[in-house]
């Protein structure tokens, strides 16, 4: 199954499309993400950012074109569980399991999917809870935590699977400004450690700081793939220009 991918590419997308009925949500996308690279996806609401990021761990299967992750061609026959061990994801609304404590949230998948013992998984979970700065909340239930704390748990939970790629879908969109700073700094730190990152966000300063490339989308198409300096100073398309004007107004 090893073909059509450059050795250094962690993610390779070629002519990938996604339809919802007749509606073209993703239209023949092409891009590559190198190992360790940070990509930020920008674009107006409804442009297909979430859809794109979900095709990367096959929560939404794509309809045509090819997707290669870490040298593996991803098709109907790919074991989705194996893929998701490799690609972690963090959602805007955390999606923590409310009936499980913070620690149980973190150790469930390592135990059930990776087959770790409870002791191994707990060790790992404590390490990542420590890394995201909430080592003392392990025994609380999600409902007892603030939004920022919940998003940190969600990040730690994804990291416990020790993925090669982390996907973030607007991780700070539901948070208040103070909590945003904390969560952003955690993602900054992760990026520095060299994990391949694809992030959808509206945090412009953050994008500029961490992104190796900006992917700008509109109406299911990729309009620009550029380094952030270029994108923020001299966007090539009118729509990107428009988008930036609107974003900066706030």
């Amino acid at each position: 199954m090893q073909h059509e991918s450059t050795a250094t590419s962690m993610i390779s997308v070629r002519g990938m499309s996604k339809l919802f009925g007749d509606f073209v949500a993703l239209d023949r996308l092409n891009f590559d993400v190198k190992k360790g690279e940070k990509i930020v996806i920008l674009g107006p609401s409804g442009s297909g950012k979430s859809t794109l990021i979900r095709t990367l761990n096959r929560i939404e299967p794509h309809d045509s074109g090819t997707l290669t992750i870490n040298g593996k061609l991803i098709t109907d026959k790919t074991d989705p569980i194996q893929l998701r061990c490799m690609v972690g994801m963090v959602f805007q609304n955390y999606n923590l399991f409310p009936h499980l404590s913070v620690l149980e949230n973190c150790i469930l998948a390592p135990m059930r999917v990776r087959g770790m013992t409870r002791i191994e998984a707990t060790d790992l979970a404590r390490r990542y809870l420590n890394q995201v700065g909430i080592p003392d909340q392990a025994d609380k239930y999600p409902i007892q935590l603030s939004g920022g704390q919940q998003q940190r748990v969600a990040i730690a939970r994804a990291l416990c699977m020790q993925p090669e790629v982390m996907l973030f879908d607007e991780p700070t969109a539901a948070l208040d400004p103070e909590a945003i700073v904390g969560v952003v700094s955690i993602i900054d730190e992760l990026a520095e450690q060299g994990i391949t990152t694809v992030c959808v966000t509206h945090e412009m300063a953050f994008s500029r700081r961490i992104a190796d490339h900006i992917i700008f989308m509109d109406q299911g198409k990729i309009l620009e793939i550029t380094p952030p300096e270029t994108f923020f100073t001299s966007p090539q398309t009118g729509r990107a220009q428009n988008f930036l004007n609107q974003m900066l107004r706030y």
């Binding site: 929560i59 972690g88 399991f97 998948a109 994804a158």
Partner: peptide
């Protein structure tokens, strides 16, 4: 979102339902 979150973690259908 619970099903979404659980499947993103690689849990099997069975585990998604039972756990």
């Amino acid at each position: 979102g619970q099903e979404l979150g659980a499947s993103a973690l690689g849990l099997s259908r069975r585990d998604i339902y039972w756990r």
